[in-house]
Design a protein around this nucleic acid. Structure first.
Lengths: 332, 332
DNA sequence: GCTAATTTTGCAACCGGTTGCAAAAGCTGA
DNA sequence: TCAGCTTTTGCAACCGGTTGCAAAATTAGC
């Protein structure tokens, strides 16, 4: 069906190598030859078969983009940034949805069958062992939104969740809240664990606080709402640091139902700063996670690894910052 | 780096064909041979190179998944359904983000370079000509969420937007609204045009109505909010049929700002029934678009086309239905 | 105009598989 | 045991490209 290099060669009356060379940059071809070949290629509507060439070059320019976050709207932004960034560098994202997949080996195997040049694991809820499975299989891997570690085993790009926890705690204390709670995402997620520990380590440095904590079972609206409805039944705290923004929105909706007001009766601070957080009817005070920078940096790291597969693993951590909106009472 | 068929053959002491055959089902291999080969393969950790085999079989099992909707949360649901559905059938989605791409030919070329077996165009805003470019290039294509046509040129799976417009109009009239407006998405989108024409053709059948219309420049929160803020300055209608849910949410936020109440002062009906529409703090009355069925059907159609590339094009249209929530006043 | 250095070109082998064909092996029945 | 038939196996060519190497063509230098 499709035109092959051989046909172009015949029409141009040159060897197959000549055609191949005009389509690989850096190869030695005379101007005359190039013109002849390009003419023939244009006439025939030829475009080279990337997969066939990958066989000899060992490069497919395919990058596995792996995630299990297909329900959190912030990941639409993440996918948008990743796909555009990869495309801009001539790389092609092969999307893998891990939502119901349990076995990391299965995806590793699949991505190896397709000879991906690398894999980006975009998730804060997948266990670190998952990305290690890729590394062990010899596939360059970047774990985006993964856990910060001082001795990373694979490349990690993300935020310091412990520090985010501290930041949330400082913010709440500074606003005079004394009865403070942590309403985390799923307890098994490393991001939840880290935020938890940062949050309470900071709170521990202050006197006279009443603290408590609980966990929603997903980073989702429903989970946040459900948990908050439960908490509201008995003596809620004055302010909550919530697992993420979408969970916060669920929490806000529960509070609204109960007749209490935000920020007058209860303060809420989220994390992520997803697009929706700035919507005027939500107006969530939250901690900004610089996803654009994280994605860009992940892609740069991946590109670097394509040239240097055994590159020593590093952790790239981006600072977060408070975005003041309307769900916490003002300072002082 | 990776183990090849040749190495397995040598270790098992058999020919390369034998190895190849044990890994292609339907091929003739004796039990004894199969066991020998599988043992060797297991020992070596071999898994066949899908791309190399595609060279001879002409099948890559790669499917281009093309969209320009990376800002509307409903498309996260769409991507989730597509990726899982394709994976379940052993197909691999190659994601293409068309957000800033202007030239259809570029993506056609790219997907042909990767020898995709087919392409799914998932968008209600891409022009029909776009999917035709794939068909003309000999790539099986399904246009999901595309325009219904009685003489489709490519396979289309979606809803009847004209009928949705009528349904919205009937619903508003039945609730006694007399001053009724259409607040569409981008005027260039076929979905907007069709909903517009259905909406006003139905309204035309009723006496004593005051009607008006305008367009937001995207299916987005900001666009909806901006347009509604403008409309609120001068004599707004009693009820609006909005382009889609996310746009409706922007509209709701504008109304809330103005001090008016929904549904008491203004009624709103959206379209899509995205997950967020049922969130308790949004609680949007809307027209349900059966995206799960659309995606499933698109995939089935794609699979069918892989066997029968010249299949006669058809349009698969799914009925929509009103989902009553809290943004329209009750009937009667 | 001739030789030497440099660039361009084609040959042929290879990447990792698949497959038509014919030979080899296994089975059946007498 | 052997002829005749079926199944299994290996050979070799092929899929659509790339690339090392040597021959051919061009350019430079004198």
């Amino acid at each position: 069906m499709a035109i092959t290099l051989k046909e172009v060669a015949e029409r141009a009356g040159v060897s197959r190598s000549a055609v191949s060379r005009t389509f690989t940059d850096g190869a030695s071809v005379s101007e005359k030859m190039r013109r002849k070949v390009e003419k023939a290629a244009r006439d025939l509507g030829y475009s080279p078969n990337a997969l066939a060439s990958s066989l000899t070059t060992g490069r497919t320019k395919l990058i596995g983009l792996i995630s299990n976050n297909f329900h959190n709207p912030i990941f639409l932004e993440v996918f948008d940034l990743f796909t555009r960034g990869l495309q801009d560098r001539g790389l092609r994202p092969l999307l893998v949805n891990l939502s119901d997949e349990t076995d990391p080996q299965a995806s590793v195997r699949m991505l190896r069958q397709y000879s991906v040049d690398g894999a980006v694991v975009a998730s804060s809820t997948l266990p670190p062992g998952f990305s290690k499975a890729f590394r062990d299989a010899g596939v360059p891997v970047v774990h985006s939104f993964g856990r910060y570690s001082s001795a990373p085993q694979v490349h990690v790009v993300g935020i310091d969740n412990v520090e985010c926890g501290r930041m949330a705690a400082r913010t709440l204390v500074a606003r005079g809240y004394r009865k403070i709670a942590f309403l985390g995402g799923p307890e098994s997620a490393t991001s939840t664990q880290d935020r938890y520990s940062g949050f309470f380590s900071e709170l521990g440095a202050h006197r006279g606080l009443t603290t408590s904590y609980s966990f929603a079972d997903a980073y989702s609206f429903d989970a946040g709402r459900r948990e908050m409805l439960r908490l509201l039944k008995s003596d809620p705290a004055e302010a909550y640091f919530c697992g993420d923004d979408v969970l916060s929105i669920g929490v806000l909706s529960a509070i609204a139902d109960s007749g209490l007001r935000v920020p007058e009766d209860i303060g809420i601070i989220g994390l992520n700063d997803m697009e929706m957080a700035r919507w005027e009817n939500i107006n969530l005070t939250t901690i900004h996670q610089p996803i654009r920078q994280i994605v860009t940096s992940s892609i740069e790291l991946m590109v670097a690894m394509l040239d240097e597969p055994d590159r020593y693993p590093e952790a790239r951590i981006f600072p977060c910052s408070i975005v003041e909106r309307g769900t916490l009472r003002p300072v002082g």
